[in-house]
Amino acid sequence: MPTKVEKDAFTGTDTTGHEWDGIKELNTPLPKWWLYTFYASILFAVVWWVLYPSWPGINGYAKGVLGSNQRLDLDHRMAEAKAAQATYYDRLASASVAEINQDPELLNFALVGGQVAFNENCAGCHALGGAGQSIYPTLADDDWLWGGTLEAIEQTINYGIRNGHEQARFNEMPAFGEILEPAQIEDVTDYVLSLGGTSGNAEAAARGQALFAENCASCHGDDGKGLQDMGAPNLTDPIWLYGSQRPQIVAQIVKPRQGVMPAWSTRLDPATIKLLTVYVHSLGGGQ
């Protein structure tokens, strides 16, 4: 409790009575209008309560007389954006992916829209930019299991791979662990490694070549370069989905892994699939 108001000798202003190292704080009163701005801001808040959603209740909230609703605003703006895109979507619907790829305006729209759709639906497995990861193939390189043309990509996205859809791409590499002897599998592995330019046991590779022609060439081709119609990978390039090391190749021959991809036509509309097709084609490997 201050006992007595003390005046500062120099300025004649009252002090607050607080003192730090001999320096006393002056008690300069705030101007009245400053107080009024405070009242005005209280009034502003009251007006706001009336106009806009504000007070929570038990079963709802005060909605405000202006009927402002940010969720509806969002819906409204999304609808506006959709309407603005509608002209593009109409053109996309009637255009083939090849036509889209030739039309600079549609191509630009597809690259941007396709990226959004890709990041939402595809990047979970194929990674951003189609970089691929783990057992999910890279889409940005020039090596394709099922073909890298616009039509082939669209087909793969539409119906997927080994997912039970009747139009899905399907193949099934037999488990050679049940067909060939372990030693034979080692020989074939040596041959497959030699296809990729890795020198191994030349003698074993020679034995493996005969086994390869007998067991593998029907799908992977006599030269081991694969067959995209069958989804049979090229074994002569340095791109290996399940690994390029000897144990990984052996494992794949003994009991192959069979990757699955969903049929996106059951989830996405045709226009979005076209966007995705053009986008994936643009990632670098499109043929």
Partner: peptide
Amino acid sequence: NPLFVRLSDGGLR
């Protein structure tokens, strides 16, 4: 992403 891509002929892109 990807920082680089290895191509089937061993090249980089």
